[in-house]
């Protein structure tokens, strides 16, 4: 077990290098990098701020060659890719993710501000997804083809067919705009600081419910049906028949025998769900005006804020790999056939 864990942890290193080298290379070649942005900004100031579109045929270079070289040097673009990659990596290893090219804030500070929000939504949805989908899937499997099963299937599938952010928009229109039960977005109200403790909690809950639903719909459906279908397969299995032949009631056979076997694929998905949910979704965050990791990542890609992009990538790939190891551990806990040899 320990040996296995050490091996898996060591494996993180090459995977991490692979992901980051690839991303780093891409940032070098995608047009519209920070230097081009500087040039464009400088050009806009010259032409009088009137339009963001450069005039056709306007090829005048607003910055001198010297200035450009200076910028390239500043961003490390003057060196070969590998050299600047290792330069970047060296800084990352000391905990320095660099500085945003857009806000000139340290990347780590920007990410750190978002982590609690993403962690908050992520862990609640993870808890709910597992806490609700497992019992729901079990009930649906046992009551297969009953009214309860059919109706819940329809609801869950509608949720699945609509993307999370559209669900978010619909929820906002219905419950926040039309009926004004929930706030229109944001993480907390503006007057949050002046509220009593109870008021704060209540305010947070009100702000949480709608985005949480939007966050969850996708994985919720997948996990519910995964649970239901695997359990149904196991209910028809030989060993459940053996259990009933021993004299067990159907219910005991489900809970003592079939259930644990059906949890194996749920455990396999655990790591995937962790990284998916913790990294958030920029569209949902945009809809609800929540400053989570998803939104930050999206904006920095659009704005070519490469240090932030790379910083988020470092954290998310790390989460992803840790999630996979956690998955393996979960699977090994429920399935004795899996050993760490």
């Amino acid at each position: 077990m320990t040996a296995y864990l050490i091996r898996r942890l060591l494996l993180i290193i090459p995977t991490f290098l692979g992901i980051t080298i690839m991303a780093f290379t891409i940032t070098r070649f995608v047009p519209g990098g920070p230097i081009e942005r500087m040039i464009a900004e400088a050009r806009m100031q010259k032409t009088g701020l009137s339009s963001t579109r450069p005039l056709a045929g306007d090829q005048t270079q607003p910055l001198s060659e010297e200035q450009i070289q200076e910028l390239k040097k500043y961003y490390g673009f003057d060196k070969p890719i590998l050299v600047s990659y290792f330069f970047w990596l060296g800084k990352v290893l000391t905990g320095d993710l660099g500085v945003s090219t857009r806000y000139y804030d340290p990347v780590w500070d920007m990410i750190r501000d978002r982590i609690p929000i993403s962690l908050y939504f992520g862990s609640i949805s993870l808890l709910l997804v597992y806490g609700v989908c497992i019992p729901l899937g079990i009930t649906k499997a046992i009551r297969h083809k009953t009214q309860f099963d059919n109706i819940s299937s329809i609801i869950v599938f509608i949720g699945y067919a609509i993307p999370g952010w559209v669900v978010g928009v619909l929820l906002l229109i219905i419950f926040a705009s039309q009926w004004e039960i929930f706030p229109l977005g944001g993480f907390v109200s503006d007057d949050f600081q002046d509220m009593t403790v109870f008021g704060k909690v209540w305010d947070l809950i009100l702000h949480t419910i709608l985005p949480l639903i939007a966050y969850m719909v996708g994985s919720f459906t997948v996990m519910t049906f995964l649970m239901k279908n695997t359990l149904m397969d196991h209910l028809a299995s030989d060993y459940v028949r053996t259990a009933i032949a021993k004299g067990l009631s159907f219910e005991s056979a489900v809970f003592r025998h079939a259930l644990r076997n059906s949890l194996i694929p749920m455990a396999t998905h655990f790591g995937n769900n962790i990284s998916l949910i913790l990294m958030g979704s920029f569209l949902i965050e945009k809809v609800f005006n929540i400053n989570g990791m998803g939104l930050l990542g999206y904006e920095s890609v659009v704005e070519r804020d490469y240090p932030v992009v790379m910083g988020i990538l470092v954290i998310s790939s790390f989460l992803f790999m840790v999630g996979n190891i956690l998955s393996d551990i979960c699977v090994a806990i429920v399935d004795p056939r899996v050993t760490f040899e």
């Binding site: 032949a245 021993k246 076997n261």
Partner: peptide, 29 residues
């Protein structure tokens, strides 16, 4: 009744099946 039948199964009438590979629960000792 089912309850009465359960007292017979495994105690008075037992059954063994063709496939020993799948007839036992893989996750229990």
């Amino acid at each position: 009744s089912n309850v009465e039948m359960r007292r017979i199964r495994g105690k008075k009438i037992s059954m063994i099946f063709q496939e020993p590979m799948t007839a036992l629960n893989p996750v229990h000792k």
